[in-house]
């Protein structure tokens, strides 16, 4: 082999193991799912025995009011949990970004909910929401207030609260890390110029944290679309379909309805949705960077 060619091939040879692993571990299952979504496939059959039905599964789903309701629930759930978690998480980080005594202990305490297994979280909240012996209704009762039918009339709100409790710490630790890595010089300059606490937050801290916050929000959003165990344990998707998020519907379609093809098609819809969101977020991020670069260039020119 000529040395020039060998030189050119070397990087690819180093990449090859990673590429092979990627193909086996990522692309093959993904391709399998996409292939399966075009078939009328029952769990008792192998994929080869299943009948090819083209886009039928996708079309059926699109016209299925239950699927659309489930999609609506998922979007609502993801929107509310991510919004509240971002506000509370970043707020907490801003509050706790200082040298208090016992700070490290406090931080550990704050991230505890995230470390608990989702099934346990589901069970815990299910018992706390219990209509008669649950913590909340007993408290309300003791205060002389009317009790609330948490998992009945207000099921979606209740699971949103549980998710906020569990996942706010995730936003909190990432925001705190972002805050602590901010350039101290910019904050000092602002302080010397007489910026108030609020002004520092709005004009310095938040804009500088933005790239981290966007990635954090994106990660949470992707996760919120896929949450399953907590809701499965708390409500099993009920009452009606009011808390049946897509991940739960996919799992029921595969196991209860025994329609693997439809479940695969549903997963693909979810995948497309998440892919769209990710691309949009990164495009937005890129746009911001370009704009910042332009501003910097303009400032440099002025000088």
């Amino acid at each position: 082999m000529r040395p020039a060619l060998a030189n050119r091939l070397t990087p690819y040879m180093f990449l090859a193991p990673a590429a092979v692993i990627m193909a086996i571990a990522l692309l093959y299952p993904l391709g399998y799912m996409i292939w399966g979504s075009f078939r009328d496939w029952s769990p008792s059959q192998t994929i080869g025995e299943a009948e090819f039905v083209g886009f039928k599964n996708y079309i059926t789903l699109w016209n299925d009011p239950n699927f659309r309701e489930s999609l609506g629930v998922t979007l609502k759930f993801a929107f509310f949990v991510v919004t509240f978690e971002m506000i509370i998480g970043v707020g907490l980080a801003l509050l706790l970004d200082r040298d208090l005594r016992g700070m490290s202990l406090l931080r550990t305490l704050f991230i505890l909910p995230m470390m608990i297994a989702p099934v346990v979280v589901g069970l815990m909240w299910r018992y706390m929401y219990h209509p008669t012996v649950g913590t909340y209704n007993r408290l309300l009762d003791w205060l002389g207030l009317p009790t609330v039918d948490w998992l009945g009339q207000h099921a979606l709100m209740s699971i949103i609260i549980a998710d906020i409790w569990q996942w706010t710490p995730f936003i909190f630790i990432l925001s705190l890390a972002a805050l602590q890595s901010l350039p101290r010089s910019a904050l000092e300059a602002a302080r010397i110029d007489g910026a108030t606490g609020w002004q520092q937050i709005i004009h310095i801290k938040l804009p500088l944290m933005m790239p981290v916050l966007i990635v954090t929000a994106l990660l949470r959003l992707i996760d919120a679309f896929k949450v399953l165990e907590v809701i499965l344990v708390m409500t099993e998707g009920g009452p009606g379909l009011s808390t049946e998020i897509l991940a739960l519907r996919i799992s029921r379609t595969a196991t209860e309805f025994r329609e693997l093809g439809v479940a695969a098609a549903m997963s693909n819809y979810l995948l497309i949705l998440l892919l769209g969101l990710t691309v949009a977020m990164f495009a937005f991020n890129r746009l911001q960077e370009i704009r910042a670069a332009r501003v910097r260039a303009a400032v440099e020119e002025d000088e």
Partner: peptide, 21 residues
């Protein structure tokens, strides 16, 4: 029958709507 799982789920969610909504 093999399709009962799907019908059962629909029946169950619809009745839940009767009971709660």
């Amino acid at each position: 029958i093999p399709v009962w799982g799907k019908i059962n789920a629909d029946l169950g969610t619809t009745l839940s709507k009767v009971l709660t909504e």
